[in-house]
């Protein structure tokens, strides 16, 4: 089975931005342009997150999602501010293939994961985890790494898998946007404790970082943002490099 390479677009409409450490935003470009650019580079999937919807307690902007999804023929996942089954439904009708949820499930009602997976199928429900390291364990954060939840990451990932989540997107509050490598312990701990696919995000600064997390933690997918946005590399280069090092990519 091929490792999936996912391009991640963090959007503060109308721009894709890159949060550093989940704080301080830099404008990168328009979602539709970047989506098409990464699609043409050979991305296996795209993840679009409206990073301020949850924080501002407003609905995700569906028209923006629809625009971004227009010219891409690969899976398109969307998240940010999702808090009801109706939000899931609207996103699928705006072009999302999978919906990403975090804050509402953690803070208000984990059961929404079960409801959504029963209605839309597990494969279309991604739970986003924002993990922050405390000593030898990790705690779940919400609202782009701003709010503590008190939940242990390893307990929570098992809970969401039991509730029917189809996939886990694992971000690290400590590593995100810093381009200094993944939290490999975090990724391998999560990969070992659940049997659903895990997407490793946060921290890739170069090709070796990607190879290290893939070889040492064995996630099912890696999500890339900064190194693509700042054109340090392309998805094609990442795939060539991985292939040369014996990793199967499509």
């Amino acid at each position: 089975m091929s490792l999936r390479i996912i391009a991640k677009l963090d959007v503060k409409p109308p721009y894709v931005v890159k949060p550093v450490h989940f704080e301080g935003l830099r404008k990168i470009g328009l979602p539709a342009e970047l989506a098409e650019k990464y699609y043409k580079q050979g991305a296996d999937e795209l993840i679009y997150t409206d990073i301020v919807a949850s924080l501002y307690q407003r609905e995700i902007l569906f028209a923006e999602v629809e625009k971004a999804a227009k010219e891409v023929f690969i899976p398109f996942s969307v998240g940010g501010g999702v808090r009801s089954i109706d939000d899931f439904s609207k996103l699928f009708h705006s072009g999302a293939d999978k919906v990403v949820i975090n804050t509402y499930a953690v803070q208000n009602d984990p059961h929404i994961i079960k409801q959504a997976s029963e209605i839309f199928g597990s494969q279309s429900v991604i739970v986003n985890i924002e993990a922050k390291k405390w000593g030898s364990s990790w705690e779940c954060y919400t609202d782009c790494g701003r709010v503590r939840s008190g939940k242990s990451v390893l307990d929570w990932v098992n809970e969401v898998a039991d509730l029917g989540a189809g996939e886990i997107m694992l971000q690290s509050v400590d590593c995100d946007g810093r381009q200094r490598g993944y939290d490999i312990d975090l990724v391998s701990s999560v990969v070992e404790s659940v049997s659903i696919p895990v997407i490793a995000a946060s921290g890739a600064g170069n090709l070796e970082d990607v190879l290290s997390v893939v070889q040492q933690a064995r996630p099912d997918a890696v999500a890339l943002a900064s190194i693509l946005h700042y054109e340090k590399t392309t998805i094609r280069e990442v795939k060539d490099f991985l292939r040369k090092n014996g990793v199967e990519v499509s």
């Binding site: 089975m1 091929s2 999936r4 189809g166 996939e167 696919p197």
Partner: peptide, 8 residues
């Protein structure tokens, strides 16, 4: 891992 997800 299930779901089976990705290019094959």
């Amino acid at each position: 891992p299930i779901p089976h997800m990705g290019f094959n």
